[in-house]
Structures are given as structure tokens and as C-alpha cells.
């Protein structure tokens, strides 16, 4: 029972460039909160994209509970929450419809995220980044989801919204025994959140 990356290698195809990720190993157990550290440009976001299946590794595999990620059908058990929520929602869809992309929303989830019913009728440009991020989280929290990858999810938010969103995520992670991968440049935040850290050199 774990999310495993084995010897992942990946490069964006440019001539003469070194791969961004070179034989990376990572293991994440349910209930664990793993912090990914490393300066800008070391491939933290790229690693998340590989783990969630948005990109395919040049070599190496991603296993979810022992089974390769690509063999899963339906909603991916590994979901990613992005740094810029405004680029992760369809700008031409009302947010209520965006939420339904992932299927029906569990009861109580919208209240717990402080999503006001009026927001469901709005378009993404009519909401702030913090408000949009709440929708992205609600959309990702499906019953079959086992692992959440949180890539700088609160970097653009004010401190109070940041604390709100993380309190909610930690609570949900515990209830659903999710494994979390957390990427952030904010070291006090990482110390507060993570049970373990891994550095991308």
C-alpha cells in the first residue's frame, strides 16, 4: 500500500539538455506527508506531473499500491492540485459545472471549504485565486483518490486563506488516510506540515 516512483528519468526534449529528473526514487505511504525540497528549476513540479500521470517518464515507473499507474481506469487515484488555480479551471465554464467534472461533490465538502453557493454561478475571472483554489481542492477530493500532490497550492494566497486551506487539507488527509506530497518554498510552512522531507538535488 503505497505510491512508489522507481528510477524516474524525464527530460523536456531539447537538444543537448540534461534530463530534469535523473533516476529519482520516491515512496509515499497513506497518512504520510512528504515535503519535496529543492531550488527553482530542479523538477519538483515535473515530478508531481509524472506521479499524477500528466507526463510519461522516459524511463522508470510509477506504481500505485503495486500496480502501474497507467493501468488504472476512471478517476486517477493520484490527483494534483496546481500552483495557479486560474490555469486549472475552464475559463468558459461556470464553477458549478467545473466542480461536476469530477462527478458529484460529497455532502458537506463545500461548507467545509467555505465555498458560498453564489460562487457556483460565477466564472473563474469573477473569483480570487484563493476562492478558485477551494474549487480545485473540492474537485480533486473524490472517494477513490488516495494521494494528493500539492504543488505550491498556497503560495499566492494570503496568510489567513493559507491557514484555512491547510487546516482543511490536513483534516481530510487524516479522515481519508491520504498520502500527501507537498511542494513549497516556505520552510516554516513545510516544517509545520510535513512528516518527512526529500530533497531533489
Amino acid at each position: 500500500m503505497s505510491l512508489e516512483a522507481k528510477q524516474l528519468t524525464f527530460g523536456y526534449r531539447r537538444k543537448g539538455k540534461e534530463p530534469v529528473l535523473d533516476h529519482i526514487d520516491l515512496t509515499l505511504e497513506p497518512g504520510e506527508r512528504l515535503g519535496l525540497l529543492g531550488p527553482s528549476g530542479r523538477g519538483k513540479t515535473t515530478l508531481c506531473k509524472l506521479l499524477a500521470g500528466y507526463e510519461k517518464p522516459d524511463s522508470g515507473t510509477v506504481l500505485v499500491d503495486g500496480k502501474p499507474l497507467k493501468e488504472y481506469r476512471g478517476i486517477c487515484p493520484v490527483q494534483m492540485i496546481w500552483q495557479h488555480p486560474e490555469t486549472a479551471v475552464d475559463p468558459l465554464m461556470k464553477l458549478g459545472d467545473t466542480l461536476k467534472e469530477g462527478g458529484p461533490v460529497e455532502e458537506g465538502l463545500l461548507e467545509a471549504l467555505h465555498i458560498q453557493p453564489a460562487w457556483l454561478e460565477r466564472y473563474p475571472t469573477e473569483l480570487s485565486g484563493g476562492e478558485l483554489q477551494r474549487f480545485c481542492i473540492a474537485r480533486a477530493l473524490r472517494p477513490g483518490v488516495r494521494y494528493l500532490l500539492c504543488d505550491e497550492v498556497s503560495a499566492m494566497l494570503d496568510l489567513i486563506t493559507q491557514a484555512q486551506i491547510w487546516t482543511f487539507l490536513l483534516d481530510q488527509a487524516e479522515k481519508r488516510s491520504l498520502g500527501l506530497v507537498i511542494v513549497s518554498h516556505n520552510s516554516p510552512l513545510m516544517e509545520k506540515l510535513c512528516t518527512r522531507m526529500q530533497t531533489l538535488a
Binding site: L159, A163, K192
Partner: peptide, 11 residues
């Protein structure tokens, strides 16, 4: 609400 100062969210 700073992570190092209590990380307390108000609603």
C-alpha cells in the same frame, strides 16, 4: 496565521 506563529485560520 503564519505557520511559525500558530497557523490559526479565522473563518
Amino acid at each position: 496565521a503564519l505557520p511559525q506563529n500558530g497557523f490559526i485560520p479565522i473563518s
